[in-house]
């Protein structure tokens, strides 16, 4: 959230992203927005909540809402035997955990590799991806964290 580091990073043209995979797609969140990466935790289900909310986890005394990124992106349900990982991100409303398939490395990207999100990205991802870094051999999708964690009001969903 703090602007100073990203500004200085922008000055040098290089930024760091924490990366992860969701249903084969390669996503990145700016390192400064990531609080921590942890393996699967037991969750408490929240009845009546939107489906993308998988539950609540206890992160050292802090109660954190876990959002299933596959469901958030309208992707296939993961194989039942694979437990997701937690990418805990800082948001305006406190920490939120993004449940992802697999966690990747922290990568350095250069400004010249950046391109605005192509309009041909299909479905939900289109709303949540702000841009693409063209890495060697693959594309890194930049995830808009605030948008990813803003889930429609449960009341509205229940009425639907």
């Amino acid at each position: 959230m703090s602007t100073t580091p990203s500004l200085s990073a922008a000055a040098t043209g290089s930024r760091q992203f924490s990366t992860f995979y969701v249903d084969g797609l390669y996503f990145g969140v700016e390192v400064l927005k990531v609080q921590e990466l942890i393996r699967y935790q037991d969750m408490t289900r929240v009845p009546l909540a939107p489906g993308v909310i998988r539950g609540l986890i206890n992160l050292r005394g802090q109660i954190v809402t876990a959002i299933d990124m596959r469901r958030r992106l309208d992707m296939h349900e993961p194989p039942a035997d694979r437990l997701p990982m937690n990418v805990v991100v800082r948001t305006d409303d406190g920490a939120v955990s993004l449940l992802v398939d697999e966690i990747g490395d922290v990568v350095d990207v250069q400004q010249e590799q950046f391109e605005a999100a192509p309009e041909t990205i299909r479905g939900r991802a289109n709303d949540l991806v702000t841009g693409v870094y063209k890495m060697t051999g693959r594309l890194l999708l930049v995830l808009d964290v605030e948008r990813a964690v803003s889930v429609e009001r449960p009341g509205a969903r229940a009425a639907a």
Binding site: T44, V46, D93
Partner: peptide, 27 residues
Amino acid sequence: VKPLSKQLKGIAVFAGATIMGDGKVAL
């Protein structure tokens, strides 16, 4: 008593959440 995150605030049947003795979260 701990407040729920904004994603869950609209659910009228819950007033908040708490952490139990075994470390699990209860609504």
